[in-house]
């Protein structure tokens, strides 16, 4: 497969160690990875394998100890905290497992937040369209405590997508949701990829969720240890995961 397009995100020998000396933990061990534009990648692996760390480093929320992270052609290495924040604001969207929304702000205000932080006034209907797209029309004025977990997660996705980022990262976005809400969120993500050629990197423990992705990347002990296309189905993915967990244990 030859692709001359710039990858949305690229990691080159990215390593991240926590602590120093004897108690140091290598969460990422010289990982190379490319996430092409318009693709949906799932990241799987046993607990503690470094999935979240990978996502944080790739999103510019955390800095690698060595190696390089390039978002939309921009290497993060030399950027100041301010420049990095700006880049994140315009090129990266992020959805956490929980606690995604600022409790003080309404759904609409939360969605508009990245635009406002960028010093841009949201265009008329821009926020409403975004909320409608995630199926939350009419909920603009509600505050997070007044929304269900699934609804909150959809607001978070709307917020992550509103600035049309080069890449959307999601760390176990369905982890705190029931099956139905989780499926809804996954459909949303899939639609964003299909309709808007959105690049998505999603960490998940759920083989069913991973099966909605184009590609599944397996991580163990901070290293990429395998890869499957998403269309192989949930069962084969689950099998692969189980084998991995058995090996690492």
């Amino acid at each position: 497969m030859t692709n001359h397009e710039t990858p949305a995100v690229e990691l080159r020998a990215a390593a991240r160690t926590f602590g120093s000396g004897e108690r140091s933990v290598t969460a990422l061990d010289r990982v190379d990875a490319r996430f092409e534009p318009g693709t949906f990648t799932a990241v799987m692996g046993p607990s503690g394998s470094g999935k979240s760390t990978l996502l944080h480093c790739a999103a510019g929320l955390d800095r690698v100890t060595s190696g390089e992270v390039i978002i939309d052609g921009v290497p993060l290495g030399g950027l100041s905290e301010r420049a990095l924040t700006r880049l994140r604001r315009s090129r990266v969207g992020f959805v956490f497992q929980s606690f995604n929304l600022v409790p003080a702000l309404t759904a609409a205000q939360n969605v508009a937040l990245p635009l406002r932080l960028a010093g841009r006034r949201p265009q008329r209907g821009e926020v409403a369209t975004m909320l409608a797209e995630v199926g939350l029309d009419g909920r603009e004025g509600h505050r997070p405590p007044e929304l269900s977990g699934g609804q909150q997660q959809r607001v978070a996705i709307a917020r992550a997508l509103v600035s049309r980022p080069a890449v959307l990262f999601a760390d176990e976005p369905t982890g705190a949701l029931d099956a139905a809400s989780g499926a809804g969120v996954l459909r949303l993500l899939r639609a964003a990829v299909d309709r808007h050629r959105q690049t998505i990197v999603m960490v998940t423990h759920d083989p069913v969720a991973a099966a909605t992705a184009d590609r599944v990347v397996f991580l163990a002990d901070g290293r990429v240890v395998g890869e499957l296309p998403g269309m192989v189905g949930a069962e084969r993915i689950a099998l692969h995961t189980a084998r991995l967990e058995a090996v690492t244990r």
Binding site: E81, R82, R86, F94, L117, A118
Partner: peptide, 13 residues
Amino acid sequence: RELGLLRAVGATP
């Protein structure tokens, strides 16, 4: 946490 979230969403220091 809240301020961290703002930072994550794109607020500069």
